[in-house]
Design a protein around this nucleic acid. Structure first.
Lengths: 260, 260
DNA sequence: GATAATCTGGCATCATTGTGCATAACCACG
DNA sequence: CGTGGTTATGCACAATGATGCCAGATTATC
């Protein structure tokens, strides 16, 4: 166990909390306050700050570690379900009857698929298996599945075959799954093949919509997918940090806020 | 078994319940209350919340895990699940490491997908979305998804695009989903498009394996898929009617019986 | 149909949380 | 050395969340 710093620079304390989060996966506020010899208020402030940076997720009584890029798809899709569902509820308001919509892989897009109103006639294309599974039985929807080799990390098809399939599509709207969003660096993702597929998607879609949860704002990933200029519409959480939100608005991209 | 947290963040409790659901498929409220050291009321509240998130389905006395997809396909797949699982357990004994296997759509084939032993390296192609979803995360398996228009009745992709995809494959073994089997009429199915796809599948596969539950024996369907001569291997239930079984053996097709 | 177990919703109670405010430490600058 | 500003911290208080208990309704089981 790491020794808590006795005089304790605030940043040291947060480093210690990060360590504990990585080590145990979760922390308890009261226990941290006692261990570090500060009031629970300070701990709460730290946790709030770490949560807004995307390091952890705040829960009643403490916090649990956030692992944005690790873990398999089914784990990720259980995190932040409520927040992603709210984002999805806002996003589906952008849909119009008869549109041809592409739903990229990603846990947020899975929530969007679930949030599509019953009876709204759409044609939906996707390379994500869980999304196709969620739309199975929704007879009002014409569903096209992009074939190819399935990537277990992404939860969707990838590879040259999938790329070729996508090139034959001309979606009206594409909901792009996002790993990170930064104003200068644009949209990024963790896998090179995934990035290539998403770039093709952006190239062929009339509109590109991006749904981004708070922890992904102002972060970067190894592979670039699109620049801010390629984005037609942003959907963000209402409690996103105001200055980040303002800077995104200043880019000229329409922003839709998901009511919290 | 995961150890329940002693101080117990509320979110940890729900995570524990999720784990138990995934592990055992069902949970009992009274047992959970005792294990976690909280009142049954809290457990019931948790289960209600998890149910509203779609994680589980509430039943009298506890909850059962929800399979992600709903609709007519999953209804079918819940019928005779035990019998189909036994059939599947026998069928996977036919698999050899490194084989290229095609799993056609159908609830029996979904059970086969679930019954594939962990660590057995295979390449699996499928046009069935629930099967692809079931294989997601099984990293020992290379999974190829056949793209195309998804048919909500079948639960898989169909159409000309899927046909073309299939023509590029040369599976070692194909597990053919079956609606009916009759010695004179061969294998049949209810939809013409489905039949066309299955015919293509039979044409391109080295071996064709048929898993058939008792109620499908000696029945016919509108559209013909294959003759008895096209079948390489049958997998039947051990308690099939002896005279039907004997007549199938007489056709010269090897028969594997699933122990009941 | 009777009985026992379980479920739902309301309520009281306690813990946790966010916010405003005051205090103290620290830093830069004249 | 003094001063104004910033930051971190702790405390008080109101709001929210979680929990257990209870009464009435519902459901399983005999």
């Amino acid at each position: 166990m790491t020794q808590p710093a006795a005089p304790g620079l605030p940043s040291d304390r947060q480093t210690y909390i990060r360590q504990r989060l990585q080590q145990d996966g979760r922390v308890v506020a009261t226990e941290l306050a006692q261990t570090l010899g500060v009031s629970e208020d300070s701990i709460r402030r730290d946790l709030r700050e770490l949560a807004s940076s995307g390091v952890c997720q705040r829960v009643y009584g403490g916090a649990i570690a956030m692992t944005p890029n690790t873990g398999n798809f089914s784990q990720r899709s259980h995190e932040n379900i409520a927040r992603k569902a709210r984002l999805a509820a806002a996003a589906v308001q952008l849909l119009r009857p008869g549109q041809f919509v592409f739903l990229d892989s990603g846990s947020t897009n899975l929530e969007i698929a679930r949030a599509i109103p019953d009876g709204l006639p759409l044609t939906i294309a996707t390379n994500a298996i869980p999304i196709a599974a969620a739309l199975l039985g929704r007879t009002a929807l014409e569903v096209l599945v992009v074939g190819g080799r399935m990537d277990h990390r992404i939860g969707g098809t990838m590879g040259s075959s999938a790329m070729l399939d996508i090139q034959t599509l001309r979606p009206d709207v594409c909901f792009l799954g996002t790993c990170s969003l930064d104003i200068e660096l644009g949209v990024g993702t963790t896998l090179s093949e995934e990035a290539a597929l998403k770039r093709e998607l952006v190239r062929h879609s009339s509109q590109v919509v991006l749904c981004v949860t708070n922890e992904k704002l102002d972060t970067a990933s190894p592979f670039s997918v699109a620049a801010m200029a390629d984005i037609s519409q942003l959907v963000l959480e209402a409690d996103a940090e105001p200055h980040k939100l303002q800077r995104l608005r200043d880019c000229g991209v329409p922003v839709l806020l998901a009511s919290s």
